[in-house]
Every structure is written in C-alpha cells, then in structure tokens.
Amino acid sequence: MTSDTVRAAPRPTAGTVPDKAPPRRRRLGDLPIAIVFVLPAAIGFAVFYVWPAIRGAYLSLTKYNVLTPPRFIGLENYRQLFGDHLFWNALKVTAEYVVLNIGTQTVISMVLAVLLHRLTRSMVVRGIVLLPYLVANVVVALVWFWMLDFQLGVVNQVIEWLGFDRVAFFGADLGIATIAMINTWRHMGYTALLIFAGLLMIPPSVYEAAAIDGASEWRTFWRVTLPLLRPVMALVMVLSVIGSFQVFDTVAVTTGGGPINATRVIYFYIYDMAFNRFNFGYAAALSSVLFVLLAGIAYLQLRLSRAGESDLKGA
C-alpha cells in the first residue's frame, strides 16, 4: 500500500479535515427540505424492504403455504435447516459460483478498465464493452445455453472440428463453472466501466510523478493505480459479491438446479421451496439465514477494505 509516489502526498489526520464545517443552526434549517428529498426513497425502502424483511423474519417462525394462515412453530424451520443437506449443498454451490464469478469478473474487468484508461478514450469501444450488459439476463443465458448444447451447439461443433471431445458444459462437473462464466461475460463490461470511472478520479499528476521517477507501466499499475483505486474497488466488490450471491435467472432457464444438485444455488433453492413446494415458512427461514450471511460478508468487506477512506484526501 505504501508507495513512494503516494507518500509524497501528505495524508490527512483526523483533526485537519472539517475546518469548513457549517454552523450547527444552519444544518437544522436544511432538515425539512432534506426530509422531502429523502422521503420518496424512504417510503419505498420501508414498504418494499423493511416491512417484507420484518414479515419474512416472522414467517420464518411459521409453517405457511400462502393459502392458509401461517401457524407459529417457533425455531422448528431453523432446526430443520441446519440438518438439511440441500441447504449446505446450496451454500457450497453458491460459494463456488461466487468465487469463480467474482474472481474472473474482477480480473477481466480490471484489465479492460486499465486498457480503456491507458490506451483509448473511444466511446465506441466503451459502448461495445458494455454491450453484453444491455442484453437481458435470461436472453444471455438462453443464447449461451443453445450455443453450448452438447449435441446441437455451435461451440461443441467447433470443439469437435478442432479434434477434441465434446464437452457437457451444463453437466454435474462443469455446470456451475459454466453458469459463472456466462455471467462473467455479461457483467464484465459494466464492472469495467465502474472501475474506469474510478480510474478517471485518479489525478494525472501522480502518473506524471511516476513517469518522472522512471516507473514502468507494470509498476505504475501495482504501486499507483491499484492502491488509489481501493475505495472504488471496495464498492465494486461489495456490490458484485452481493449481486453474485443472488444468481437465479441463469440457473432457472438453463439447468433448473440439476443435474442432481450440482447447480442448485441458494436463491433457486429458496424459490423452489416457496413457489414449487409451497413451503413459504421454510423458504423465509432460508432467506433470513442468507440475509445474515450477506450482511456479515458486506460488513467484513467494508471493514477490511476501509472503503470509507480515500488515499487521495488532501492531495
């Protein structure tokens, strides 16, 4: 994290920043107008997030099939959940997916963003990079599903022409990796643009300084770009990891969780429990556990990456 070029910029200490803070009375005067601005979002948040979350937490303590009133059963759903091999399998499969998806997506996006930043400012290129993201998830999944079909797909035909054996892309061994790669393909352009925006915030002066010091492009990336990108990367990681955990549609339109349980990710399991098996109480318990898990992961990520601080302050 410490680089010679960055250290040249003095780091702010806690006491030095808020010297221009407005007087207290003024801030209270802004309160009514602030509330007006915040209210629409707050109502949406309350109605569509807070209330369902509270009700979901309650339903997780019941046996509920939507059509008859919920029956309170205490912690029974949670007791059942911890002994449910499909729950643990779903967590495992989802974790595999997240690691593969985030791993490849972040690296490829970073490379794309740096290339966009250092090589070209062309809007056309930026547009092309973003293109996969503009196609609906389900369409992307279905197109790839057709292309990767074992017997009919163009990809397997090419593989065969090249002299290799056909590949069961959605089989038990490769299914989850294939789904991860499809979503990496779809999201990498979008993530690259987020990172690209972060790159634009890095002042050119630090690159000039690096150039004067004779740093190579490679070294500049590791010593200047990457450290200064940290807050943006933290945001990108938190958003994409949480988004990645929510994988559902790609699974739903391709493998449907199979074969066996090889691609039964947690969201698909929750959906299956609720809408196919009408076990809404149990599905609510699964969702509650996932909520706690995601909250924990997001908190850890933010703590570890010190996302609220920037190395550029005061520069």
């Binding site: 009919l152 069961a168 089989g171 199979g258």
Partner: peptide, 21 residues
C-alpha cells in the same frame, strides 16, 4: 441413450430429435 450430463447440457428432447440426434 444419452447420459444425464449430456441431456442437462441440452436444450431439450424435441429439438434434439428434430436435429436427427
């Protein structure tokens, strides 16, 4: 008969039959 890996990597029986497979 195709394996589970093959059929789960396929769009469906009708289209595969239609392609002469």
């Amino acid at each position: 008969v195709p394996s589970m890996d093959i059929i789960s990597s396929g769009v469906g029986q009708i289209d595969t039959y239609g392609a002469g497979k």
